[in-house]
Design a protein around this nucleic acid. Structure first.
Lengths: 120, 120
DNA sequence: ACCTTTACTTACCAAAAGTAACTAAATCTC
DNA sequence: GAGATTTAGTTACTTTTGGTAAGTAAAGGT
């Protein structure tokens, strides 16, 4: 057992899983990455940008991110409604870590695709 | 639109999502992190360490990671069977990026937990 | 002869996510 | 002035994903 070991075994006691489980869902990381590159987006701009997310899941995802304080939500009292989403300082602090994952994915895309086609 | 912009809008054409979707599942990142700290583990050592993963999902997760070439599987022809899992070089190259996410989660755990209890 | 052990698989059930339709109210079109 | 359009959602229903519990194979221990 290495030093600085993290205990993963209990969900509630595990500092990591409690937080990371929130990004283990299908859309959170993608929403953060996109808001990171576009700064401010309305609900259906985000939806068009992602392309394959359902309205329901985008709404749920944004609500969770807002609850955690990663995304802020600005409502303009208009009809039809206008709501703008952007990253908070906390969300921005996570961004470079996710971008580093994206960079890794880009660098290793070819080799992983090859591995997949070998094994089927 | 910033320079170095990534196009997220089409699943198949998106270099990022094609790869990252594989870690968007419930267990992959955790398995990589644990194998990263324990070096080599047998199937049920991994299961005990995670604590809440089902045998079925651990098997599925390991098979996907093996297919992608992130995890290697060494079978000892014994009865009862012995199978050892460890990270490949590719898996090891991903590890620091995931550990950086863990570090972020640790640093921001308190504030996120507070945010959740305010809104939640 | 029977129980144990390990790394799975399988059949069945629960939870998460996808789909499509619906809503409210101001503005635009005819 | 009746009806379509627009936006940010919500709701009811279906599909997909994950969880549960039991089963499997074959060697060794009691």
């Amino acid at each position: 057992m290495k030093e600085n070991q993290i205990n993963f075994s209990e969900v509630d006691n595990c500092p990591v899983r409690n937080i990371l489980d929130r990004f283990g869902d299908k859309w959170s990381t993608l929403v953060i990455l996109i808001l990171g590159s576009y700064d401010t987006l309305r609900f259906n701009e985000l939806q068009k940008m992602i392309g394959t997310v359902s309205q329901k899941m985008l709404a749920v995802t944004l609500k969770k991110l807002e609850t955690d304080g990663l995304v802020s939500r600005k409502v303009y009292p208009q009809v039809p409604p206008k709501v703008e989403y952007s990253l908070t300082a906390l969300g921005l602090s996570l961004l470079p870590k996710l971008e580093s994952l994206v960079q890794w994915a880009n660098e290793n895309r070819t080799i992983i695709t090859e591995n997949r086609s070998l094994k089927g």
